[in-house]
Amino acid sequence: MALLSVRFALPRREFRLELALELDGVVALVGPSGAGKSSVLSVIAGIVRPPHGRVALDDEVWLDSERGINLAPDRRRVGLVFQEYALFPHMTVRQNVAYGGRDRVDELLARFELAGLAAARPAALSGGERQRVALARALAREPGVLLLDEPLASLDSRTKASVRDELAALLPELGLPTLIVTHDYEDAVALAGRVGVLVAGELRQLGRAEELLTRPADAFVASFTGANVLAGRAARRSGGLTEVVLESGELIRSTDALDGEVDVVIHPWDITLSGVEPAAEPGLRPNQVRAEIAAMTRVGGRVLVAIGPLRVELTGAAAAELALAPGVVAVASFDPALTRLIARA
């Protein structure tokens, strides 16, 4: 597969966007809105020209500020799928796809199940259909790189799930370096092999989804993956355990060796709830936080429980069995070996 290398610095109003990225395979950039994610796509596509930078696909140089090279967007082989798709409203589906390139129109219409809609105009299409047209059009251009700007953000939640599955299957098949920009961590993980977390113009961490979960670079990355992040003060004790006094007063332990101000990271699915303190089992005693349940939210078959400083995820059946309800006092338990500590800057 070709390799897209991107390196640039771009001053923004509130921060300086700096990025160095080697792109082969499917990578998602995830981050809060305003983090500069879409600007990365604009720089690669040639819509925005950074004062310093270099963008090259293998040995094809698209931008090199030092050598004064800056190819126009139409001379860079990018397939950019815009968030709102940017289909030409005055053209039919077929004309839209053919605008990218005439050679593979029929093949692409068939592949994206658009043959029956070839004569329709974009206004008559559903969100999912529009996205398929936008993808087919971008691929008709025979791009060397595929760029997707918030590919799922414009879809309703029912369509989103099926489109996400389709995209997840399609993207690796294309064999193109692909960069996806999204604000949704779950979408990023579902679509891409590697995920980069971009905050205020800075790439905090780039890695496989498991790495982000098990070894988050900082508290922000951890909270973005959906983890509980609690501030506390750590001190190493004998026996390879670290004791942490949380800001809320509880004492918990971790197998990570660290001293001083720390962020404690625990994933919601690594926590169990019980009505009373569970009987001591052989082995490492679990961390326990006893608190009142503040809120419960049912999402699909799972229940999200807010208890004290923690968010806990469990199955609906488990929640019913424990007779959990807002206002009830319960005990949240989690394994010290699954309790990550990150030094605070």
Partner: peptide, 13 residues
């Protein structure tokens, strides 16, 4: 303007 940009990224001068 996004339609204009889309056209450019699709290879049209």
């Amino acid at each position: 303007p996004e339609l204009v940009m889309a056209s450019r990224t699709l290879g049209a001068g």
